[in-house]
Design a protein around this nucleic acid. Structure first.
Lengths: 219, 219
DNA sequence: CTTTCCTTTTTACAATGTAAGGGAAGCATA
DNA sequence: TATGCTTCCCTTACATTGTAAAAAGGAAAG
C-alpha cells in the first residue's frame, strides 16, 4: 500500500481543477493576463497543455474559475468583519468591505479585467453581494433603494480602481511636449489648470475615501 | 476616358486610416469585437490584410483609433447642447451629456471594452472631459471638487452601462433551476426577495435617472 | 491475463497578428 | 526618354494561440 500523500502537500501528478486555478492565478499575478496561456499554465504545472482540458472545459471556463477564486479570496478577507449590527453603522460596514476587496484586487491586478469580462455570476459573487444586501437591510432601506445603491456603487463594490486614463497623454516623452502643451492650452485650457491643481493630491486613498463619503451623502 | 469617381463615393482603391477605422467600427457593430480581425477587416475593405499596416501601426493602434472615433461621435452628439449657462443647471447639463454619450454607446456595444482597455487618453476624450470641467466650473466648484466628482462618476461619464452581471446565474435553463433555487434560498435568502422586489423595475433608464439624482444629492 | 475506466500525452489544425520583402504605379530629375 | 524615388499594396511566411481527436499509460476490477 502506498503511503497516502498528505492532503496539504501539493503533489505533482494529481492534477485537479483547484491546482490548475491556483497556478493560473499566480501565473497571472506574475506575468499579467497575457502570460496566462494554456501552454504556459501547463508548463508551470509541469504538464502538457491538453491535460488541462480534462479538468477545465476551455479557457473561458478557466477564466470563470479564477474569477471565482478571486471573489472567494475577498470573502475570506471580509469573513471576520462584524455583520452590520445597528442601522447606523452600515456605512462603515460597507467601507471596510470595499477596502478589503480593494486589497485583494491590488494583489491581482488582472482581476478587474477578468471579472468584467465574465457574463455569468458565480456563487462567490452572489454571496458577496448578499453580504451587501444584509448591510442595506440593516440600514433599514428598501430593496428598491438597495438596488439603486448597488447600481450607484457599480463595480466599485468589488474594489475596482478604474483609473480610466493614464496621466500621460500619448507615448510622447518630453520632446514634443512643448508644442503639445501649447496646443492643449489652446484647446483645453481648463484641463491645464485642473492638472496643476490636482497634482498635489495623494494618489488613491483620498479618492476612495471620497467615494465612500459620496454614498454617505446620498441617503 | 474613365469618369472621375465623385469624391464622396467611398472609392475602392484608396485606402486610408479613416476608411479603415470606419470599416472597423461597422464590423465590430455587426459582429462584435471578436469579428474585428485584421483579415476580416481587410476582407470588408476588399483588400489584403497586410495592406492595413501601411495606415495603422498594428491592431492596438487600430483599437486606439476606433476608441477615438467613438468619443468623437459622442462629441458630435453633444455639440448642439448649450454650454452650462448658470451655476444652477450644471446637473441638467451633465445629465444630458451623459444620456447622449449613452446613446452612442448603445450603438456600439463593444465600445466600453475598447475604451477600458486603452491606456492612453486620446484628444477626443480630453475634449470630452474638458466639457465636464467647464460645467463644473460653471457650477462654481473648485478643481479639487471637480476631481472628486470625476472619480465619483467614473466611467459613467462616458455612458457606460456596466451591467456587471447577467440576470441569469449560469447557463442553466429551467431544468436544474429548482434545486438551484432551493440552494439559493438557503445560502442567499435576501437575494431572492431582492430579485422579486426588483423584478418589476424598468430595465435601464430609471437606473440612470437615479445615478443622476445621486450626483445631485452629493453637492 | 484481460477488460474497463480514469488521466495524460501525442499529433494536428485553424485562426490570429505581423515581420520581410517584392512589386506596380506615379512623379521627379537627369 | 531613361532613371530612380516615393507611395501604396500584395505575397509569402512564421510564431503563437486555443483546442479537436485519438492514442497511450496505468490502476482497478473481473
Amino acid at each position: 500500500m502506498t503511503a497516502e500523500t498528505p492532503p496539504e502537500t501539493i503533489a505533482r501528478s494529481p492534477l485537479s481543477r483547484e491546482r490548475i486555478l491556483a497556478a493560473a492565478v499566480t501565473l497571472a499575478d506574475e506575468g499579467g493576463l497575457d502570460a496566462l496561456t494554456m501552454r504556459g499554465l501547463a508548463d508551470a504545472l509541469e504538464v502538457e497543455a491538453m491535460s488541462l482540458y480534462y479538468h477545465v472545459a476551455n479557457k473561458e471556463a478557466l477564466l470563470d474559475g479564477i474569477a471565482e477564486v478571486v471573489v472567494e479570496e475577498i470573502l475570506e478577507e471580509i469573513a471576520d468583519l462584524p455583520g452590520a449590527s445597528g442601522p447606523e453603522d452600515w456605512k462603515q460596514s460597507m467601507k471596510s468591505r470595499i477596502l478589503r476587496a480593494r486589497q485583494v484586487m491590488l494583489r491581482h491586478k488582472w482581476a478587474p479585467w477578468v471579472l468584467e469580462s465574465r457574463t455569468t455570476m458565480n456563487g462567490a459573487v452572489l454571496r458577496y453581494f448578499h453580504g451587501f444586501l444584509e448591510i442595506f437591510r440593516a440600514g433599514e432601506m428598501s430593496y428598491d433603494l438597495a438596488h439603486h445603491a448597488m447600481h450607484a456603487l457599480g463595480s466599485r463594490a468589488l474594489g475596482f480602481s478604474q483609473e480610466l486614463f493614464d496621466p500621460t497623454p500619448g507615448s510622447d516623452d518630453e520632446a514634443v511636449s512643448d508644442e503639445l502643451f501649447a496646443q492643449m492650452a489652446a484647446e483645453v485650457p481648463l484641463f491645464i489648470e485642473f492638472m496643476q491643481e490636482i497634482a498635489h493630491d495623494d494618489p488613491e486613498d483620498q479618492t476612495l475615501g471620497w467615494c465612500d463619503d459620496q454614498s454617505e451623502f446620498e441617503f
